[in-house]
Simulated assay, not measured.
Amino acid sequence: MTASFKPVSVAIGDLTAHPANVRSNSPETYDPENIAHLKASIAVLGLLQPLLVQKLDGKYAVLAGGRRHAALKDLVADKAAKGFTAKTKVDCRLVPEDCDVTTALSLAENITQAPMNAIDEFEAFALLIVTEN
C-alpha cells in the first residue's frame, strides 16, 4: 500500500489518543523525564515531526506521535510555556476515516525509528557547543 496523507493543522485541544496506537503505555505512563526533554525541544524548536491522526468522534485521534502529543499537552498545562494553548495548531497528517490498516501504520511509525548511535550523538552535541560559543 502506498499512502499519502493530507497535511492538516489541528488545535492541540482537539487531539485525543487513538485506540489503534500500538504503544501499550497510556500517555500518563510515559517516562516523565523523556517527555520533559521532548517538551523542551518542542518549546524551543517547534514540532519537528507531524502527528499521524485520524478523525474519530469529532476529534483528531493520534495514531502515531503519542509522546509528542503528551509533550504538547504538558506545554498547554505549563503556564510558563509561552505560545501554547489548547487552540494552538500543530502540523498533522490525516489518515482517511475508511483506512483499515491503522494498526499497521502505528506499528510502522514506532518500529522503523532507530536511536542514534553514541558516537554520532556525542559529535552532534559537541558541534552544538562549538557553534554556540
Rank of each mutant, 00 (worst) to 15 (best):
T2G: 03
A3D: 07
A3L: 08
A3M: 05
F5K: 00
F5P: 08
P7Q: 08
G13C: 08
D14P: 06
D14I: 04
T16V: 11
H18A: 07
N25Y: 08
P27V: 09
P27E: 07
T29R: 13
Y30W: 06
D31V: 00
D31N: 05
D31W: 00
D31P: 05
D31T: 00
P32R: 03
I35S: 05
A36F: 04
H37S: 10
K39P: 00
A40V: 02
A40Q: 12
L45I: 06
G46V: 06
V53F: 00
V53M: 02
Q54W: 00
Q54T: 04
Q54D: 02
G58T: 01
K59Q: 09
K59P: 01
Y60S: 11
V62H: 04
V62S: 06
G66S: 09
A71H: 01
K73C: 14
D74V: 06
V76R: 01
A77I: 10
D78F: 08
A80S: 15
A81M: 07
A86H: 09
K87G: 07
D91W: 02
D91N: 14
C92D: 07
D98Q: 01
C99M: 05
C99L: 05
C99Y: 03
T102A: 12
T103R: 15
S106A: 11
S106T: 01
L107W: 05
E109W: 08
E109V: 07
N110M: 12
N110W: 09
N110Q: 15
P115G: 12
D120L: 15
F122S: 14
E123S: 13
E123R: 14
E123K: 12
F125H: 15
L127M: 12
L128A: 14
V130Q: 14
E132H: 13
